[in-house]
């Protein structure tokens, strides 16, 4: 049983908003399978009861005071935009099926 199937690769690509050609999907499946095969060595380690580590820092997140500071001007904010009407970022029409609440 393969560790990752072509269908899973295509599903994952959709989640990541990547579109793969047939050739790319084939190559990606092969590469990811090789990497996941290699990663399978982790299965041999007993990690029962071991705390997962998100960060090596044993510190707590610092807090800042609630003092607003000048941000970017609207011009600077939009300066790099591939699509803009001078006040908003413009994107292709969001379809009903794409709507997120």
């Amino acid at each position: 049983m393969p560790r990752i199937t072509r269908e899973q690769v295509l599903y994952t690509a959709r989640l990541a908003r990547l579109r793969l050609t047939d050739d790319e999907a084939r190559a990606m499946t092969r590469h990811l399978e090789a990497i996941l095969d290699y990663a399978a060595q982790l299965e041999t380690v007993d990690t029962e009861g071991v705390e997962p580590m998100s960060h090596v820092m044993a510190l707590e997140t610092p807090l800042r005071s609630d003092a607003p500071q000048a941000g970017l001007s609207a011009d600077d904010a939009l300066a790099n935009a591939p699509g803009s009407d001078g006040t908003h970022f413009l994107v292709p029409k969001i379809l009903d099926s794409e709507t997120q609440a």
Binding site: L42, E51, M53
Partner: peptide, 8 residues
């Protein structure tokens, strides 16, 4: 699993 290995 990888996060647990990181602890070890």
């Amino acid at each position: 699993k990888a996060q647990q290995l990181r602890t070890l």
